[in-house]
Structures are given as structure tokens and as C-alpha cells.
């Protein structure tokens, strides 16, 4: 079998339906746009939980902001028949993630839970993954950001502070997942539905964001994903995101 055939073979396997079933868990999210008000509570929650830097006015001016979740808003129509639609955008943890095959050092890969993860220690900063990400979910650390003292007292000790030259993005709050899995393992059971909530999900006032295990057919996420309003953003790219959006009515 030639190299290209073997790659094709693997690729097919990778894309087979049911591939995710082999994962311990398959974390996913459902975002109900009919509930989302665009209030950005999730944005601040994420910034607090994951030690996202304060990049400053100059940082914004040069496009160096780092956000793992943002609210995109789109205008539709003209005054007075105009609509404003909001959509929270974060790493989609695609099953067929375009960022993964392009990393020369395997800094970004799929873990055993179906998460698209970023290994900061491996990252050499080629930024290929960001270029390939159709959701613009990745941010690059152009600087080693610092916190004016004593704002650094707030930093979450469960999350690494990233340095210059490293790519970063939403992890689905992997530190919370790890903690829940550890607890579950100690008690010899699986993680219960609702036991893990990433910071954004926890804070959402309208409960538009729901997180859980897609391998568990009884989880809230699995049930909501069946909703006829469901869709995946940029589905035509076949990235097969782990995030199902429920369309705004």
C-alpha cells in the first residue's frame, strides 16, 4: 500500500460514523441562539477562568486581543427593518479539525475525549493552525503579557499562563473536566451529566449554553442536539463541529 493510500485509509477511519464512540467521552456543546441575548457574561467568565491576558488599548489597536469566546453580531436588513443577530463563537472542537493536520509539531491534536487540545509546550508558533481555522477561534501570543500588580493575585492556579510565541484557544475548560473525571474515577463511576460546566456555560444568564457528553444518549446535550432547529456553523466545510447551534426563531 502506498503512503497516500495508507493516509486515505486512516482518514476514512477517522471520518467513519461512530469514530467518536471509541472516546471515553465525547464532549460537546449546544448553543441555543433563541436564548442567547449577546450579553457577554460568557466572555468575562472565560477571561477570568482561563487567565486570558489584558492586552491593553495598544494591543487592540494592533489586533493582538486574545479571546477564547466572543459574541459575533451580524446586521441584517436596513433601517427601519433591521435585525441584529448574535452568535457566540468559540473553538468548535471539530471532529475533523482543519487545525490538526497542519501542525508540524503535533501541538494540536484530538485527545481521548474528542477534544481538540493545544499542547503549549510543543507549540513553536508557526500559526498554521490559526490560518486553517475557519472559525477564527485561535489567538496567538505575540507578547508575554503581564498583569499590573496586584491583578495577578486573581490568576487561576489551575490554568497555565501562556507565554510569547504560543497559540491558544478554548479548551472547554479542560481543567474542570479533568477535575470531574478525577472525582468520578475515585468514586468508580462515569462523570454525571451536568457535573462539568465550562466557565461560559456556568455563567450564562439565559442558559443558552449547555455542555455535556455526546456519547451519552441521555445527556442534555444529546437530547438538545436532536432539536430540529439544530445546525453546525460552516457545515459545508465538513469539519463536523462538536458545537450544535439551535437557530434563532
Amino acid at each position: 500500500m502506498s503512503d497516500s493510500d495508507s493516509i486515505k485509509e486512516k482518514w476514512k477511519k477517522y471520518r467513519n460514523p461512530g469514530y467518536q464512540d471509541k472516546f471515553d467521552y465525547s464532549w460537546g456543546m449546544v448553543i441555543d441562539l433563541d436564548r442567547c441575548t449577546g450579553c457577554e457574561a460568557c466572555v468575562t467568565a472565560c477571561q477570568a477562568e482561563n487567565n486570558l491576558p489584558i492586552v491593553g488599548e495598544e494591543g487592540f489597536r494592533s489586533g493582538r486581543e486574545i479571546k477564547w469566546i466572543r459574541i459575533e453580531r451580524y446586521w441584517d436588513g436596513e433601517y427601519p427593518d433591521i435585525k441584529l443577530r448574535f452568535i457566540p463563537m468559540l473553538c468548535q472542537h471539530c471532529d475533523n479539525a482543519p487545525c490538526e493536520p497542519v501542525c508540524p509539531v503535533y501541538a494540536t491534536y484530538h485527545n481521548q475525549d474528542g477534544l481538540n487540545v493545544q499542547v503549549y509546550n510543543r507549540c513553536i508558533g508557526t500559526r498554521s493552525c490559526a490560518a486553517y481555522c475557519p472559525y477564527d477561534a485561535r489567538s496567538f501570543n505575540w507578547f508575554s503579557f503581564t498583569w499590573d500588580k496586584p491583578l495577578d493575585e486573581q490568576l487561576n492556579p489551575d490554568v497555565t499562563v501562556r507565554e510569547k510565541g504560543v497559540m491558544e484557544k478554548c479548551t472547554f475548560c479542560i481543567q474542570r473536566i479533568r477535575q470531574a473525571k478525577d472525582t468520578a474515577k475515585d468514586q468508580n463511576r462515569r462523570v454525571r451529566d451536568g457535573e462539568v460546566q465550562p466557565a461560559c456555560v456556568q455563567s450564562c444568564p439565559t442558559q443558552a449554553l449547555v455542555f455535556g457528553d455526546r456519547n451519552d444518549p441521555d445527556s442534555a446535550v444529546s437530547k438538545l442536539a436532536q432539536n430540529p432547529r439544530g445546525y453546525q456553523v460552516l457545515k459545508e466545510l465538513n469539519t463536523n463541529p462538536s458545537i450544535i447551534y439551535l437557530k434563532n426563531l
Binding site: E72, R85, P228, R229, V233, N248
Partner: peptide
Amino acid sequence: ITGKRITM
């Protein structure tokens, strides 16, 4: 992106 043209 916001799914407005998605049929159910």
C-alpha cells in the same frame, strides 16, 4: 453563520 437560512 447565524443559521437564518437553515431549513428545519
